[in-house]
Amino acid sequence: MFAYIIRRIAYAIPILIGVNILTFYLFFVVNSPDDMARLHLGMKHVTPEAIEKWKASHGYDKPLLLNKQAEGVEQLTDTIFFEKSVRLFAFDFGYSDDGRDISYDISQRMLPSLAIAIPALIIGLMVNITFAMLMAFFRGTYVDVSGVILCVVLMSISGMFYIIGGQYLLAKVFRLMPISGFAAGIDTIKFIILPVLIGVVSGIGSGSRWYRTFFLEEAGKDYIRTARAKGLSESLVLFRHILRNALIPIVTGVVVILPLLFMGSLLTESFFSIPGLGSYTIDAINKQDFAVVRAMVFLGTVLYIVGLILVDITYTIVDPRVRLS
């Protein structure tokens, strides 16, 4: 097991290198630093001197991949690629275009993101499993059929509609909670209720329909027939035999996205003005701040890979077939 995890981590390194080369290519080869400087400076200041100055002040005045003027190792390290990409491996994200420390910003914005994402995930999981089990329990009946149709309708609605509709109805018409914003301390609760609620509701359709297929798949297995032949009650069959097995794909499906919760939700955070990493990303995109976007790409990749490794570990915990073979 330990060897397996080591191998997975080792396997992650070429992936991270690949991601870095890809983003580097997107940012610096297709768009040369000159292009970037022109874009940032706007049309009026575009003189060669101004471009050089901008490049020097933002660290883009070096060669892309290989510095022929430098000596020894510096040939490789004194380049844009090394400065901007390789340092990411040490989680040294550098400074954003407006001069802020990206690592500091990320650490500050992580908590608000999690304050929304974790409650939404946990409540959503419970709600979805409950609905899915209800539909599976009444499989083939009117309850199940109408439940599935309701799910399809719910998942056909745009996520933005849930947000805008929720804000309008609950916050503006009924004035139950603030429309948007965020505060630290005990006030947090006031601000996160609505985003969490909307996060849960917008996920019900696809979530419970998806989980329902897990339950139905298990319900058709031979060992469920064995359980019935033992004389167990239908609820015992559902909770003890079906749920136990259906939880394996559900739990591993949750674990893989667990690390990505740090990244926050783009839509929710931006609509509710939550100072999390999601809105940070959107701001960076809108300001065309490549340094921040690149940092977020790297962070997201790392978290995704962590998720994959966590899934493998989770399997060995929840599934005896994997644990013991």
Binding site: I15, V19, L22, T23, L26, F27, L260, M263, L266, T281, I285, V293, M296, V297, G300, T301, Y304, I305
Partner: peptide
């Protein structure tokens, strides 16, 4: 493994 929105954005 690259967050899709970010890849698209980039």
């Amino acid at each position: 493994s690259i967050p899709h929105v970010l890849l698209i954005a980039a």
